[in-house]
């Protein structure tokens, strides 16, 4: 039974690992181009396993931001995992050692959560282990490949690959914005607010991590106040 669950997790994890490889390749490239060593880039991916958080964290490291800024930025950007872990805590099988929950937690990403949440009934932790056992190497090895090749690839290739992560973000946020007007307002509102921080004098002195924190708290807070979700939409988020 454990083995069956594990095997199904591995199968679900293979396409995730391929996508991770491509995105973490650009992360490794950006990290090394910015001045980190190959080992440091790989260490970040292995210990963090999160796309948006790592890209934002990298910018703060390269800009020499404070530890406080990097901690707060990770907290805000990765707050969505909190929601997923809540949901997963209701979904995991009740029996078995509590240790499993500490291990499964490390692999709560948008995609791994996505496949395990879509399982019928309760999920075995071994299913998550299966997905993690291919997705984590995909993410880490992709970073290594990008870090190694980052300095060899010509400028025009690294320049083009620089938009990959943003393309991925848009692919996540735009489809729900088509059907949910509140999400659309949140997306447009957040882009406008962060643009203000880039253009307006004084505001443009605020460092990148704090811009993300302030924008997220402000826009998500206003949206939660004026357009509280109904249960149906919450299901959609999963």
């Amino acid at each position: 039974m454990k083995y069956e669950s594990y095997k199904r997790g591995v199968v679900a994890g293979i396409p995730i690992a391929l996508g991770y490889f491509a995105v973490s390749f650009t992360f490794g490239m950006a990290a090394v181009t910015g001045g980190l060593s190959i080992g440091q880039a790989v260490l970040i991916s292995l210990t963090n396993l999160t796309s948006a958080g790592q890209f934002a964290g990298l910018n703060i490291i390269l800009a020499g931001g404070s530890y406080w800024e990097i901690a707060m930025t990770q907290l805000i950007i990765n707050l969505r995992y909190c929601l997923m872990s809540f949901s997963l805590s209701q979904k995991l099988v009740k029996e078995g050692s509590p240790i499993h929950r500490f291990v499964v937690a490390f692999g709560v990403t948008d995609e791994i959560f996505g496949v395990s949440a879509s399982q019928e009934g309760r999920v075995s932790p071994y299913y998550n282990y299966g997905a993690m056992s291919v997705a984590i190497p995909g993410w880490t090895i992709g970073t290594l490949a990008g870090a190694v090749l980052g300095n060899i690839l010509p400028d025009f290739v690294t320049s083009a690959l620089g938009v990959a992560i943003y393309g991925m973000f848009l692919a996540i946020i735009i489809p729900p914005a088509k059907t949910n007007k509140a999400v659309l307002k949140v997306v447009i509102g957040a882009m406008l607010v962060s643009s203000l921080f880039a253009i307006v004098p004084v505001l443009n002195k605020v460092s990148g991590g704090f811009v993300i924190i302030i924008t997220t708290l402000l826009v998500a807070g206003l949206a939660a106040y004026f357009c509280p979700i109904e249960e149906k939409e919450e299901k959609h988020a999963e």
């Binding site: 948006a52 996540i172 946020i173 729900p176 957040a190 962060s194 997220t216």
Partner: peptide, 10 residues
């Protein structure tokens, strides 16, 4: 629910 959209858009 709104945090990921606001954060990724920003």
């Amino acid at each position: 629910f709104y945090v990921p959209y606001a954060c990724l858009a920003a």
